[in-house]
């Protein structure tokens, strides 16, 4: 997995609540058997009309946001399906962090598996960052995961919370399957106990 340590970049404002995974990546692009190449279809139905023509008003079609690395959005970002294609598409487009007042649980988990950092902040702070994001190229935002700190274009810093284990994995780019496999003895021990306590579960 790609490491996430610090990031300074352009933030795109997407002031909508309940941005669902069907919006982030419509189902016709879930037919892929790869993880890559989905960036071109990110927010497809908002970015393009039904003939494939780009919608000039959509934020990610406007300069400098075509190079955005941070997304600032409304409540309940990533609600809907479990499709990991949503973080894959964001990542492939170039987005490395999403800031919102709240996230749907499955999407939030999926981000951490892909080197993408979701940051939850109180609504009034997200609104300030939304205003920063609207300033475009002159208003870069810095995210420092080690320090758990966002620096606004004004230089003001904002602290954020993140689970310590997820932070550790993200900073070091750790593959959690590898980490779990180190606990193989514990897993095998659990399975042995299970055979006795709930024997009907052993198929």
């Amino acid at each position: 997995m790609d490491k996430f340590t610090t990031l300074t970049g352009i933030a795109a404002p997407l002031p909508m609540v309940n941005i669902d995974t069907d919006m982030i990546i419509p189902k016709q692009y879930l037919k892929t058997i790869k993880r890559t190449g989905l960036g071109q279809f990110l927010f497809d139905e908002m970015r393009r009309d039904s003939t494939g023509k780009e919608n000039p008003d959509f934020v990610l079609n406007k300069e400098p946001y075509t190079k955005a690395e941070i997304l600032v959005a409304g409540d309940n970002f990533g609600c809907g399906s479990s499709r990991e294609h949503a973080p894959w598409a964001l990542k492939d487009f170039g987005i490395r962090a999403v800031i919102a007042p709240s996230f749907a649980d499955i999407f939030y988990n999926n981000c951490f598996k892909n080197g993408l950092l979701p940051i939850k902040l109180p609504e009034e702070i997200v609104e300030q960052l939304m205003e920063d994001a609207k300033l475009g190229a002159n208003a870069r935002i810095t995210i420092d995961l080690e320090k758990q700190e966002i620096t606004r274009p004004s230089g003001e810093t904002i602290a954020f919370e993140v689970d310590s284990f997820r932070k550790h994995c993200l900073i070091n780019g750790l593959d959690d399957i590898g980490l779990t496999l180190q606990k193989d003895t514990k897993i095998a021990g659990y399975e042995e106990k299970l055979k006795l306590s709930q024997p009907w579960l052993a198929a």
Binding site: N109, K113, D163, I177, T180
Partner: peptide, 21 residues
């Protein structure tokens, strides 16, 4: 019973466990 992403699908296939809070 709950939904998981593809990375977690791989994790369950490989380990029959999940890292969860």
């Amino acid at each position: 019973a709950f939904g998981i992403g593809t990375s977690e699908v791989e994790h369950v296939l490989a380990t029959q466990t999940l890292v969860q809070a």
